[in-house]
Amino acid sequence: SGVAILPTSLPQLHRANMLSSGLLQNSNIHPLVSKKSKTKWHFGIRSRSYPLDVMGEIYIALKNLGAEWAKPSEEDLWTIRVRWKYSGSNQIANNEANNSQNQNNEKIPDLLKIVIQLFQIETNNYLVDFKFDGWEDSSGAPVTPSDITSDEISAFSAYPFLHLTTRLIMELAVNS
């Protein structure tokens, strides 16, 4: 095959040629770093604060962001069931119709639910976990998936959930 890689296009050779040919006026041009630090992922967010302080900070952040939550049960103080009016849905409603229904007359639920739970990993090391917990409609109407085949049951957009968790993490970061 006549397919080949042009030798003079390889970065190292190009730089050598530029230096030897005297064409280089601007000598402080350095190559982009090719070793990219791999993104290190964690579950949720870590904390070494006192557990009750962590919960207090989360409740304050949720309040500042206008979220609401169910009163925690005595036996489970470390779980918060949050409901959040998602502004994006109003916007969609305005875009597509006035009464938050789109052309196919489908309800666009606007209350995103999240479960926030505090776990102890080891002594003085805690993890705040965020889980998506479905949608509700502020009018109280049940959110029923439209009649779709079982194959498509999982066409699910995580972006509203991801967006609201970034808002909460920002609020916690700013407050702390």
């Binding site: 397919v3 041009i29 770093v33």
Partner: peptide
Amino acid sequence: SLSVGEALMRRSDDFEGVYTCTENE
């Protein structure tokens, strides 16, 4: 005023190179 040869000095080392072939390919 940068020349295109100088601008190419920015390329990172993991650039694979330019592929060429002939008309008979």
